[in-house]
Computed example of a mutant assay.
Amino acid sequence: MAGISADQALGIDIGGTGIKGGLVDLTKGELIGERFRLDTPQPATPDAVAETVGKVAQSFSFDGACGVDFPGVVLNGVVQTAANMDKAWIGTSLADTVGPKLAGPGFYLNDADAAGLAEARYGAGRGHRGLVVTVTFGTGIGIALIHDGKLVPNAELGHIEIDGHDAEHKAAASARERDGLSWEHWAKRASKYLVTLENLIWPELIILGGGISKKPDKWVPLLKTRTPLAVAQLINNAGIVGSALAANEAALDRRVTPAGPSPH
Rank of each mutant, 00 (worst) to 15 (best):
G15N: 05
K188H: 10
A9Q: 13
T81V: 01
I14C: 03
H185R: 08
P153G: 07
I4F: 05
G123W: 00
T136F: 09
A172I: 04
T134W: 10
G15D: 06
G22D: 04
G158A: 02
P261A: 15
W219G: 07
A171N: 06
G130F: 09
L94G: 11
G164W: 01
S5K: 12
G149Q: 01
A232C: 11
G104Q: 03
V78I: 13
N76Q: 14
R37H: 13
F137P: 01
A246F: 04
G164P: 08
G29I: 05
P216Q: 10
W202N: 15
E161L: 11
V24F: 02
L181W: 08
L245W: 01
A190R: 00
V68I: 06
P43S: 03
R121M: 14
A44E: 06
L117E: 03
K20F: 14
D166I: 15
G210Y: 05
I12S: 03
K28H: 13
K218C: 15
E156Q: 08
I19F: 02
P100M: 03
W219L: 14
S5A: 13
N237W: 11
A57S: 04
A155S: 14
L181Q: 02
D253I: 14
L10W: 06
A250L: 11
V220I: 11
H165M: 15
L223W: 00
G140T: 02
A144P: 01
G142H: 00
G91W: 02
T257C: 08
F36H: 15
G127L: 00
L23N: 01
V74G: 00
E119M: 03
W89T: 01
S174L: 14
I32V: 12
V98S: 00
S182L: 08
D39M: 14
S93C: 07
V241Q: 00
V24Y: 03
H147M: 15
V256N: 06
P258S: 03
R176E: 08
N236S: 08
I90D: 12
A114H: 03
A232E: 05
G67K: 05
L205V: 04
L151E: 11
A124M: 07
R178T: 08
